[in-house]
Amino acid sequence: MVYRIADTQVTSSFIGQMMETKIALENKRKEISTGYKVIDASDDPGRAGTLSALQHTIQRIDRHSQRITFATTLLSTQENLVSNANDILIRAKELAVQAANGTLSTEARAQIGDEIFELRDTLAGLANTKHQGMYLYGGLDDDDPPFDLNQTAPFFYTNPPDAAPAPNPAEKTHWVFDDPAVELGQTDTRSVAISDTESVRIISRGDEVFQGAINALEILGRSLKGYRTGVDVNGDPDGTGDAYTFPDEYALQTSDIQAAIDSLESVRTDDIQAELSSIGSRVNRLEQTQQILEKLKIGTEDARSAIQDTDLFAAASEFSNLQTSLQALLAAGTRINSLTLLDYL
């Protein structure tokens, strides 16, 4: 039991309590102004590791979202590109149907043939599109376009004969997908991670999407220009093909044009539209993953917030309580110190 108290004790105890309350007030003010109740690891060491892990997760989700945006942009570009290729094939079919008409002269057919070769070159140009440094259908080979206009054997048609002087006419040339044994990675696909466990293909094999269409246009164009085209066991041009003998082989030419129309339609459905629908489904997957990531981010943010963020209502009320305590302490302190026997002497 205290039987006497020193004056310095009264003063130091008053100062100590005042400091303690002021420090608590300052801490609470910081908590309110920053919005965080946990900033230093020592504020909640038990959950500091969890908090750091949650922040990592949020940062990872943000990164995944950025990659999804990147992949979506890339696939949209591809979608436009393949859609244009589809339009080209439709236009080529229309021209071919027109050319297959038995009343058209061989010269008129040859003129349509020129337009078909224009379309072929446009299609090859689409297949060689470069976006952000990547050939969209060039596999891993960013240095070299996937399709080359080949004028040398064995992809050089034997007919028509070599032009003198060069250049050779279009019907003598062949757009060919690079040999993967020479251009490494040409037939590889490329994917991008869109979550911790999932990735989506952003670059498909160019040969599978475009080579069939290019070949079909070439065979059609050559027919219209008056040359047959020999094919190998895979149905690809083998470089051979004699000129039709008109007028005897006019009917044969018509029949080849009609066969080429079937080929065109077949590659449009099997390669081009298949790629379009594949792109569509991949874009859908990206959208779904984005939605999942957004939900995951909200959940993770909630968890982080529960550990780290200030409950403003509670903090403001505690701040107010501390203010009242400090006022009371100051009032009591000054009262006690003003009481002394000296006043009565």
Partner: peptide, 27 residues
């Protein structure tokens, strides 16, 4: 080791480094 996850902190930069590597895999 502040938990504000600000650029410059170990935690932020480690995550940013691996994030940039993952971005690079796309292109």
């Amino acid at each position: 080791f502040a938990l504000d996850n600000q650029p410059g902190s170990l935690s932020y930069e480690l995550n940013a480094f691996f994030g940039s590597l993952q971005d690079l895999t796309a292109n």
